[in-house]
Structures are given as structure tokens and as C-alpha cells.
Design a protein around this nucleic acid. Sequence first.
DNA 1: TATGAATGAGCATTCATTCAT
DNA 2: AATGAATGAATGCTCATTCAT
Lengths: 205, 205, 205, 205
Amino acid sequence: MIMPKVVDHEEQRRRIADAAVAAIGESGLDRVRLVDVARAADATTGTLTHYFDGKDALLAAALDRVAERLLEGMERFQGCDLIEMASFALPLGEPERREWRVWLSFWGRAIWSPELAAVHNRYYERLRELLAEDVRRAQSRGEINAAVDPGDAADAVIAAVDGVGVRASLDPEGWPAPKQAELLETLLEPLLAPPTEITPRRKTR
Amino acid sequence: MIMPKVVDHEEQRRRIADAAVAAIGESGLDRVRLVDVARAADATTGTLTHYFDGKDALLAAALDRVAERLLEGMERFQGCDLIEMASFALPLGEPERREWRVWLSFWGRAIWSPELAAVHNRYYERLRELLAEDVRRAQSRGEINAAVDPGDAADAVIAAVDGVGVRASLDPEGWPAPKQAELLETLLEPLLAPPTEITPRRKTR
Amino acid sequence: MIMPKVVDHEEQRRRIADAAVAAIGESGLDRVRLVDVARAADATTGTLTHYFDGKDALLAAALDRVAERLLEGMERFQGCDLIEMASFALPLGEPERREWRVWLSFWGRAIWSPELAAVHNRYYERLRELLAEDVRRAQSRGEINAAVDPGDAADAVIAAVDGVGVRASLDPEGWPAPKQAELLETLLEPLLAPPTEITPRRKTR
Amino acid sequence: MIMPKVVDHEEQRRRIADAAVAAIGESGLDRVRLVDVARAADATTGTLTHYFDGKDALLAAALDRVAERLLEGMERFQGCDLIEMASFALPLGEPERREWRVWLSFWGRAIWSPELAAVHNRYYERLRELLAEDVRRAQSRGEINAAVDPGDAADAVIAAVDGVGVRASLDPEGWPAPKQAELLETLLEPLLAPPTEITPRRKTR
DNA sequence: TATGAATGAGCATTCATTCAT
DNA sequence: AATGAATGAATGCTCATTCAT
């Protein structure tokens, strides 16, 4: 069987989009130029236009990649303790901080761009579903008060992670990993506590 | 007695910075041009450079103004119920949504600009202090469990507001005012609840 | 007798023109701004326009001042040995180097500006006259061969000084004072030598 | 064998630099705009930035070209009588006057720019070497007094040419070709005269 | 496919000049 | 006379996009 010499179009797109993420993480969304992306992808700007209809499309693809990876990260921790799982979405280490920088940069653009906003909302929907599923599972195991609406709980987790993540991203020095985790716990523990006579879980860390 | 020559320099700076906020709110931080600000300030670009050392300095001043106003907004509600007060910081109406758009746009830049990050962090510090004060007051009135650390509670409120605000800003249609308020309540109520028989556990660290 | 409160207009013009010379000497003719001159004159740009019709006129006045001072410098050494006198016009020390920088900067402009060229040529005429006078005097004292045309000799001195001065201005490190003086001597000594038995060759053309 | 892709990068740079020289010769160094150069090079300003890092770099390249051509001009006359050769470096005709205008304009800038000064000094060094070589040759033929130091003689020629050239450039009307040549002769003939019975005075310093 | 030369609109910035006080 | 706020034309530079090879 002869492998076609031509490159896999989709694979190339993904490769370039990843390069864009890297380039954005390097110099910021506002400052990134097409040549920066090209350089990061080991290609030329001309090549980029073969695969994307202009810069906006490329950036949208980059956002998509980030969202995809964030989601995959969450999926890996499915089944774990919910708060623990959520905390892994925080910018605890340098690689995560990097992804957060990119992710956060896109917020400011998404407000003005329906296309980017759509990517964000699609991601939030999937994440919410994923989390709600976990909540339901935990409730069936009696670990979370059954009175809590799984969707609401998921939204709460999302908001808590975003809120803590923003703060930590803007002041990385002031927010080392433990401090972030603690704040997340402070916010979510009462909500996701087991429906006992209210003995909140002991802190393990 | 100071006899100002012709114009009050500081007043002009403020006026122009406010115009910048308006312009950013109109077209977005990335797309705003100096002429847009000038137009909004009823001036020319040349005038802007009289008062600011270039575009970056002007944008930083704009961020300062937004932060100032957000803080002032919070101060107005001091003494009210904490959750109620916090909810007034959410993008519930169009004017607030506008401010949030600007505020949020700056996050993406602040990550790459120490100057902007400093403005943000300064604001967060002051906000935290203000909220912590309120928490202490509520505790002294017995409205909040005395075991809760006021600073931690303040951080929690900030994170919750930011988290909900981001979500609502990215999807204004999907997050009408009541839904925002509910999510905020879901997040904060257990934490800031009166010290019923259910004593939330003390923090160990 | 009442001294009028009003400033001496001419005196002010001179003061400002001198400030312009200083400012040019600081940052170069191309880069000097009106505000720089104003600052150097301890005035504001508005004041400058009271005394000069725009930047060009001010610069022309500055050139005039430099020429004036160069000429005055030469006059002080009148009567001395001609070569010695000429060498005092070279950029031997820092203050002279400074004047030369300004003077030289104007050459590039004078080429394109009849006004500035006129200042230069006027200065050259006066300098030539002054030098020719000295040559005549030296000839009458028998110190210079009488066959030499005083005007030609003056032109030769001017050219020699300019030629050496340019070289030294472009490479101050490579042309310390003694080296400049030597080259000037090499160029002028044979010409301005006493009328020894060696009759300088007759001009053929 | 090198197969140039599409255009010869260096060739293009030279073409543009030459266009810059032409543009400077047209309107002067101070007034020349990037668009003028672009127009002269039959290109756009954008193209210029492909080949040069901004205006300064382009101007420096232009200076380099002028120096190159001046040197080439001198090389063509190598072996001729030295004074005759030197006189060909003077602004005798319109094309030479043009080159001189450009060359002279750069003097005023080089004072403030180490980069430009370096170009000038490099050129002077090469020219000095070339002239000194010629002097040595003439000495071996007995045409120039062997007591004269070739390097010093070369410096003298350079200074004389520069001195006369400046004067002529500032007042082209007053300095027709013959007058320039005569002054040059007046300055250099005694120095470069054949070693007749008249021993040139020994250097004292 | 891929390259990179070329384009040119867009924009911040500079700065001489004007003018009301 | 002097100030300095305001103007706005001028211009270098950036960079996404196009296109011939």
C-alpha cells in the first residue's frame, strides 16, 4: 500500500495551530505575528495561508486546540474526587500557567468576536456536561448531597476554577499552587460536601 | 491659593482616560485606535500625547479608571449583605457589562505587561481589604461564622465574582441577571452563611 | 533716565540663537527640536516664535552666531604667525570640536538652502579678506614670498583648515591636536614659507 | 552551483541603496523620505523594509555606496600624476557635484552616528592607502621628494581635496572647475614637487 | 505544495506652528 | 511678553495578504 506523499491536511492544520498556541504563549495574543507562528511551525507565512483563511481563522483554530487540551486534561481525571479534579485545571505549574495565559488572552477577544465566543461556549458546555456527569456519579455514591443540582454544581466548579485561575494568572508570585488549591477548596467544599450531618471532609493536603 | 493657568492637567488626563474607557468598550482593546479615543474625548491625537506618553500609558490610565470605578461601586454598597453587595459587581445590566468587557480585555494584556498587572493587583488588594473589613463587621454582628478567616472569605468572594462574571461576559444571552445571581449565591452562601448549628470546619492552615 | 522694562529684542534673539547652537551641539542639527532650544534658552517654544519666524529662521540665526564666533576667534590672533593663527581654527579641544560639529552640520543643509549657503559664503568672504590682509602684512614684512597672491593664499588656508577639520571631526580619536597641527603645517608651510632662495614655481594656468 | 531562488538579495540591496543615493542627491539628506527612495527604486516602502532594517540602515547603505564609487573613481586614475588624479575627485562637473552633495550631507550626520562615522573612516583609510601607494611609486620614479612621508602626503591630499570640495560645493557658482583645480594645485604642488635642489624643510615636531 | 518577495493600507508618533489667556 | 495647550500634517514602520515561481 502506497502512502500518499502529500501531507495529511488535517494533521498539518493541527501542527500549525499548536505552533500558534506556542507562539501566543511566548509573546501574547496581541503581539503575535504570522511570521512568529510560521517560525514556530517551522514553515513560512505563505504556508499558513494554505491551511487557514487568514489570521483570524488560524487564531480560532489555536483557541480550539487549547480548549481541546484543557478538556482532555479534565477527562483524564474523571472519576477522581471532584475538587481534586478541578484543582488540576488550575495554573499550578509552569505548563498549566502557559496554557492559562493563552486561554485568558482569548477571553478579551471572544467578547468582540462571535466566532471565538462560540468556541469558548462550546467548550464550557462540554465541560459542564462532563462535570455534571461526575457530580451525578458522586451523588449516586452518596458523596455529594443529592439535593444539589448537578448542572448548578458544575457551573459552580467552572466559575470557581476560572475565578481562582484568573487571580493566579495575574499574580503568579502571589499565588503559589497550595494557595490556589486552598481557595478552590474554600469555595467548593461546602457545596460539594457529603450530605452528612455536615461533617465536611478533612483536608488531606 | 493655586491659580490654575488654563486647564487642570489632572482633570484633563482623567477626562481622556475616561474617553479611552468608552472607546475600548465600543470596539475592544485590540481594535481601539488613538483616533477613536481622541474622537471620544473630543480632541485630536496630538492632544492625547500632551497628556500621555504614548498609547500604552494611555491604556494603563484607562485601566486605572475602570478599577477606580469598580472599587467605588463596591464602596457604595458597603454595609449591605455581603452576597448582595458582591452581586452588584456582576455584569447584570448593560452598563456593567460594558465595564466588564473593558476590565476583562485588560486581563489578557496584563499577563504580558507588568505595568498593567500592577494596576490589577493593586486593585485586588484594595478590594480584598474592603471585603475583609465587611466580613469582620458581619462576624461581629454574628452574621458570619467567626471561624472563617476574613481575608480568605474576601478572596473567595473575589474569585466567585470573577468566575461568574467571565462566564456571563462570554455568553451574555445565556446568563441573564438572575442566573448570575443564583450561581453567585450557590457559591458563596455556604461559606458566608450565618453560624447555624452547622459549623463549617476550621481551616487548619 | 528710565530703563525700559521691555527686554532688549536683539539681545534676546542673540541669547536664543546661542541656546540653539548649544542645543544643536548636544544632539545634532537633524535631531534638535524647538523644545530643545527652548529648554536650553530657559524659555518656551511660544517665546521662540516671538523672536524668530519659524524654525528655519532660528537655525539660520544659530549658524550666524557660530560664524560670528569663529571669525572673532580668528580676529583675536591677527598679527600672529599665519599658520599658528590658522591652527587655532582647528577642532583642537572640546569646545572647538563642539563648534565644529555645529558648523559642519550646517554644511549639509546649506547645500540645499540658499539662505544658509549665503551665511556660509558671507563668512568665507570676510574670513578670506581677513586672512588676505594678514598675508599682505606678512609679505610687507618679508615673511612670505611676495609672488604669492594674498587672496589665493587665503583660500588655501581656508581649504586646509576645512580639510583638516573635517577629518578630525569625523575621527576625533584618531586626530589629536598635534596630528592636526602637523598636517596643517605640512600643507601650508611650503606655501607660506619665507621667500628663501627657493622660488616657488610659477603658476602655469 | 548556486541557483538563486528568484532575486539576488544583495543585488536588490545595492539597487535600492543606489536609489537612495539618487533620492538624497535630489532633495537632500534631511528631506528625503522613504517614499522618495521607494519611488526612485521603483518599489514600495514595504519593499525597502524587506531589505533594510529601517531608514537609518538604508541611509548607511547609501553612504557605503557613495564611498565605494568615490574610491572606484580614484582607482581608475591610479598611476596618473597625483595632483591630476586628486583633482578628479573634486566636484568639477554636475555628476561629481551631485555625489559631493550626498557625501557632504553625511558628514553632518556621521558626527552623531558612530555607524556612519565608521563608514567614513573606513573609506578614508582605504583612500589613504591608495594614495600613499601612489606617492611611493612616484618617489621611486624620482617625481616626488623621497623625504616626504607617503602617509602624510596622502593625508595632505585628502585634506586638500576635502577643503576645496567643501568650498566649491557651498558656492558652485563662485568655484568653477578651473578655480578649484588651481587652488588644489596651489596647495599640493609645493609638497609634491620633484626633489629639485630645494630641500623641503624638515618637520620640526 | 511551498516559498518569500512584494504590496499597501493602517497606525502611532513626532513636532512645528497657532492662539487664547 | 510669555505661556503652554491644542492642532494636524507628515512620516516611518508594521504586518496581513497576495502571487509569481
